[in-house]
Design a protein around this nucleic acid. Structure first.
Length: 304
DNA sequence: ACCCAGGCGGGCG
DNA sequence: CGCCCGCATGGG
């Protein structure tokens, strides 16, 4: 094994420093919606493009994890590394966002949680679906969508049949009723519109991930994508940490932790996040979001 | 029964 | 601009 690399890997396993799959999976990211995590066995499976990825995890000391590929046929570690952003230096990121004791508490509680990098189109569908909705139902709808409209494949090594996420071309040809049957409700029209735009006018894979403002403007041209959904796509579909999605959980959490529970305008919370966490605010957001969801949910204590 | 959910578009003043 | 409303649906 090559000791020079922090990601020292051999053919079957990879050593990931500061990595926690449980928090990563549970924190309402796209992977949460299309993947399957089996906590009792500490296994995860998901589909990346046309490939089935089956992983197993062994927790090591110091919040480190050994990642083992369960179907080492076509699945490459580079894909896994990209998905979980294993090249990020979390110690450095933590230093950059660790501005106060609230954030330190969130980091300590959920150390090793990663902001995943997902396919832009899949991320777009997931977060259009997320509006005025809850995590459990979003997952159900996305699963339905894949089961009904995904293309079937067979994993050569294991013989497992699986379906891939339906692309914009496929979804653009569906009727509203098709999507409503998946549970999409009033969002059906948004999905079809987005699918048409993304198969005809905008190639999501060609957008520049680094130009936050332009990316946001472009995404918001699509009907059904507002500022919050755009930020989620930029954060988890393009990996740009300048995005700071503010949903009902984030608003509530920020108000409780930093504004003595007094209502704030979204606009002011945006600038607050920018001043406080700068170019790392997207990473900071994921920790506060999950911390808030776990500890400050409606009816729960004030977190102090 | 009632309230809520990783919000958004449209209509109104 | 800002404010306010309706929106499908299922779980708590």
């Amino acid at each position: 094994m090559n000791k020079k690399s922090e990601l020292a890997a051999n053919n079957k396993s990879i050593y990931a420093k500061l990595f926690n799959i449980k928090y990563t999976f549970e924190s309402a990211q796209p992977l949460t919606f299309y993947g399957d995590y089996y906590a009792d066995e500490n296994k995860l499976s998901y589909v990346e493009g046309d490939l089935l990825i089956k992983l197993k995890f062994e927790e090591l000391k110091g919040n480190n994890t050994k990642i083992i590929i369960d179907n080492p046929n076509s699945c490459k570690f580079s894909k896994v590394s990209e998905k979980f952003r294993l090249k990020d230096n979390l110690d450095e990121l933590y230093r950059n966002i660790s501005t106060d004791e609230n954030m330190e508490r969130a980091i300590t509680a959920y150390k090793g949680m990663r902001v995943t990098l997902n396919d832009p189109w899949e991320t777009t569908v997931c977060f259009i679906t997320s509006q005025f909705n809850n995590v459990k139902r979003i997952r159900g709808i996305i699963k339905n969508l894949i089961n009904r409209f995904g293309e079937e494949h067979i994993d050569e090594a294991t013989g497992i049949r699986f379906k891939s996420f339906p692309g914009p071309e496929k979804l653009s040809k569906l009727s509203k009723q098709d999507l409503i049957k998946s549970g999409m409700g009033f969002r059906a029209k948004y999905i079809i519109d987005a699918a048409k735009v993304c198969s005809e006018n905008i190639n999501l894979n060609k957008l520049n991930p680094n130009n936050y403002n332009k990316l946001k403007d472009t995404l918001m041209e699509i009907n059904g994508i507002g500022p919050k959904v755009a930020d989620c796509i930029i954060l988890m579909g393009y990996g740009n940490f300048n995005a700071f999605p503010i949903d009902v959980w984030m608003k509530r959490t920020l108000e409780r932790l930093y504004f003595d529970s007094k209502p704030q305008r979204i606009k002011d919370l945006y600038s607050f996040s920018e001043e406080k966490w700068g170019a790392y605010r997207g990473f900071a957001q994921q920790y506060l979001f999950f911390y808030g969801m776990k500890n400050l949910g409606r009816g729960k204590a004030n977190g102090k």
